[in-house]
């Protein structure tokens, strides 16, 4: 790990003042479950590390007039034990349960989950976010069994976020603060597919901190289903989160979002629309799932992930209404 300056601010304003104007100057530390690994591997070599765990206003889960506010430093364990979340957002609880490590649940934060870097093994081996060598993608022609089936050149990694798909399905927003003010962004727009090596996979700017997540209070039936090979800590192969607004037993409107299948969480609007007016059962869910994966463009080794994404969508839908 490269030596760095460590800052331990007590207020958000103080923290924002410590950030840089370009990536590489400062990194924000919350749980550290991703950042420390990145630094040990010299993938990130920040000059300054800004610890935000000591900033009170970034914690807490509260009910607001519009829904629920989740502070960025809320840990996975706090989320799991929150009655407020449990009663309304099983999709978030199920996503949290997929993080099968007590250590990561206790340390990892929801803000960190959204901001974590991709797990692409080329990226983690130092070949860059887009993993290009001699003008060619190492991923597209290489070991891509865990990579994107909804990718497009040049980004073939998958978003590693566990909560992203569920938050998008629930219509959540993130609040991003900088010294010049705050802005709100739908989570769906927070994730972006980078076009160049200098881009990031999230809309956060180097001078910003993700401060909170706002989940609207609309009543939905929602669920997440993760396909993981292992029960123990393991990266999902494909996930799906769904949120259904219901009229009695029938779907009024739906949102379906798949995870770990593209450089961002992948929405399936057509599949979601196909559910309108329907009662969810095995056949309906299966059909919607098939629609959801229709646009998939698997790479040389990962066609199997199309089937996994399909299974995840079907099972998430059935779980939401069970």
């Amino acid at each position: 790990m490269q030596a760095f300056e460590y800052a331990n601010p007590k207020t958000l304003q103080e923290a924002l003042g410590l950030l840089g104007s370009s990536w590489g100057e400062a990194d924000v530390l919350a749980g550290g479950t991703d950042l420390l690994g990145l630094m040990k591997e010299y993938i990130h070599t920040p000059k300054r590390v800004v610890n935000i765990k000591g900033i009170k206003e970034l914690g807490g889960i509260e009910k607001t007039s519009a829904g629920v506010r989740i502070g960025a430093t809320v840990t996975v364990a706090e989320l799991l034990s929150s009655g407020l979340i449990k009663s309304q957002f099983p999709a978030l609880i199920q996503a949290a349960q997929g993080i099968a490590s007590m250590q990561i649940r206790n340390m990892g934060s929801i803000g960190g989950d959204l901001c974590q870097r991709p797990r692409c093994w080329y990226f983690r081996s130092g070949y860059g976010l887009l993993a290009m060598k001699d003008g060619k993608s190492l991923v597209a022609n290489g070991e891509n069994r865990y990579h994107a089936i909804f990718g497009r050149a040049p980004a073939y990694f998958v978003s590693a976020s566990s909560f992203g798909p569920a938050l998008i399905a629930l219509g959540a927003k993130v609040k991003l603060a900088s010294q010049s003010g705050t802005r709100e962004l739908p989570v769906a727009e927070f994730f972006v597919a980078p076009a160049t090596e200098d881009d990031r996979e999230i809309a956060l700017k180097p001078n910003e901190i993700l401060t909170e997540i706002l989940v609207p209070a609309e009543t939905t039936r929602n669920a997440t289903y993760e396909v993981r090979q292992k029960e123990a800590l393991d990266w999902p192969l494909a996930t799906a989160s769904v949120a259904l607004k219901m009229d009695g037993g029938k779907v009024r409107s739906a949102e379906i979002v798949m995870g770990h299948v593209g450089p961002t969480p992948v929405r399936a609007p057509k599949a979601a629309r196909s559910l309108t007016g329907k009662t969810i059962n095995e056949t309906v869910a299966e059909k919607a799932a098939a629609t959801a994966v229709k646009g998939a463009r698997p790479l040389s080794q990962n066609a199997y992930k199309v089937q996994l994404a399909k299974a995840a969508v079907k099972r998430a839908l059935l779980r939401a209404v069970s």
Binding site: A100, Y122, Y127, K133, L138, E143, Q229, A232, D234
Partner: peptide, 29 residues
């Protein structure tokens, strides 16, 4: 069920030489 050394043809590197993708069973597995 899990273990395998994955070498990359292009770079010659052992891509999963870390325990997140060099998979080992946990107690629940």
């Amino acid at each position: 069920l899990y273990e395998e050394r994955i070498l990359d043809a292009a770079t010659g590197r052992f891509l999963n030489a870390e325990f997140d993708f060099y998979k080992l069973a946990g107690i629940k597995d």
